[in-house]
């Protein structure tokens, strides 16, 4: 009896491990920052280099903090969705323009539309390191206290917004009102 049960049990355990392991996306590394305060930073604004964008600008209301660059194909891909979030859903989005050329970035935004309330200009990527960014686009959802509640890695799709981001954002807005 055991002779058959033990291999069967081992097989079941292996199936369980593979089922879980193969359905995970290895490029999505969970961020240790979720649940913590936004890392402090102060960067010159993309559009007005004399003005600073800081982590304090992220607090006050539920905010998306989106890491982008004109060199980043995924950022072009998700741009329409960011526009929809900002214009139709009224979500505040603050940008982190990563390792980009200032003129190119400003020009791109003026061509395709600017979903960002403002963008910090992180020319050498120092702030991105503090935020644990390893590939743009990455998007952090922050609550009204400026705490990171969720991190989305990779381009945001229509489904991501409808299934994950908007429900989360509406929930956090409810939390802010209470």
């Amino acid at each position: 009896m055991w002779r058959y049960l033990i291999p069967l049990a081992i097989l079941l355990v292996l199936i369980g491990f593979f089922w879980r392991g193969l359905s995970l996306d290895p490029s999505e590394v969970p961020s240790p920052l979720v649940g913590r305060e936004a890392p402090a930073f102060a960067l010159p604004s993309l559009h007005e280099p004399d003005r600073l964008v800081t982590n304090l600008d992220l607090a006050g209301e539920v905010t998306l903090f989106n890491v982008w660059g004109t060199w980043c194909p995924g950022c072009h891909e998700e741009h329409d969705e960011l526009m929809r979030l900002a214009e139709e859903e009224g979500v505040r989005i603050v940008g982190l323009n990563l390792r980009d050329d200032r003129e190119t970035a400003i020009q791109w935004l003026s061509q395709v539309g600017n979903p960002f309330e403002q963008s910090g200009f992180d020319g050498d990527g120092r702030v991105a390191i503090d935020w644990g960014v390893y590939g743009a686009p990455e998007t952090f959802v922050l609550d009204h206290r400026g705490q990171i509640r969720h991190k989305h890695i990779g381009p945001i799709t229509h489904q991501d917004i409808d299934n994950t981001l908007l429900p989360l954002i509406r929930g956090l807005e409810q939390e802010a009102r209470e």
């Binding site: 969970p30 240790p32 390893y134």
Partner: peptide
């Protein structure tokens, strides 16, 4: 490193 990127 782990504070930013996790144990991974």
């Amino acid at each position: 490193m782990t504070e930013r990127y996790g144990d991974f």
